[in-house]
Write a protein that binds this DNA or RNA. Structure first.
Lengths: 153, 153
DNA sequence: TTCATATCCGAGTAATTTACTATGGTATCA
DNA sequence: TGATACCATAGTAAATTACTCGGATATGAA
């Protein structure tokens, strides 16, 4: 069981955009360098995110991408769903259009997949990009303090 | 994001075996019929489950498969891991051998994947085959009572 | 003894998905 | 006008999935 690199890389890109929220548009090239990804592949992923209405773009020189909303308003779940599709550990418990299954009424194992689906969705929908930025800042501070400790302060 | 049919079908088969626990060995053919699966594909899945030590087999006529332990002792997580491998939404948060990532120390999005991994594992490891059997029985009774209601009792 | 029933085991395979790359546009700023 | 970006489509090698096929081996029952 795994997510594809789309969700993996795409979330990195969105986190990067969140950290630059409010500044000039960020070109893909710089995201690619910071996050260690290929520009061409990123282009595909960001196109999906744009289609989903999560990012805006500015074309031409000095152009780039930016979040369509504030990091506080964008849930990780929206990002991942835009790239990976609906949460659906198995087809018959797809969160949006479950595939009809003749055994639906008496299939007990279905319970397991529903619970897995719900727990994944719960995690994804309870974290915003802003949460990730705060955590990043927290870690920076922590690292600084450790450095101070080392230095004897 | 999805599990493969291995986990899906394999769990069905294990639930079937759990419901026949304590009786004669159950041939694959009968599982295949009840759960609406192909015998030949099931053979592959049950081989993985046997390798993992979750089922025992009896060869020859009147042979078949049975759980290696009581349904109470077998967690859904063991079954799914035997068929799908370790829980690892992305490689760098594989629950057993995380793939080394040069960014591990400062990769913030990693937090998301770890939480998803943990929530999946938590669900899988908190449900036993016995739980599923109990739920099946509960539903049977419920259905019976509804029938009685309909009949005017 | 032999036959039907089962498990066992390895190979093969069509279809799909993944994770990209390549090419050639189009818009915009300096 | 040219450098910088976004935009769009196509192609593709590799891996994975979801199976099937063929045949060997074991065992209980007639």
């Amino acid at each position: 069981m795994r997510f594809s690199t789309r969700g993996h890389y795409g979330l990195k890109a969105m986190f990067d955009l969140a950290q630059h929220y409010g500044t000039a548009p960020v070109p893909l090239k710089s995201i690619a360098e910071r996050q260690n990804l290929s520009v061409q592949y990123l282009e595909q992923l960001i196109a999906m995110l744009k289609k989903a209405g999560l990012v805006k773009s500015v074309r031409g020189a000095q152009g780039g991408y930016m979040l369509a909303y504030s990091p506080e308003e964008i849930k990780v779940g929206e990002v991942i769903r835009a790239l990976e599709g609906p949460v659906a550990p198995v087809d018959c418990v797809n969160e949006f259009d479950p595939k009809e299954c003749d055994q639906a009424d008496f299939c007990i194992t279905r319970i397991v997949w529903e619970k897995i689906r719900n727990s994944i969705a719960q995690v994804m929908d309870s974290i915003t990009l802003a949460d990730l930025c705060r955590e990043a800042k927290r870690r920076e501070n922590e690292a600084g303090e450790e450095l101070n400790l080392k230095r004897g302060f």
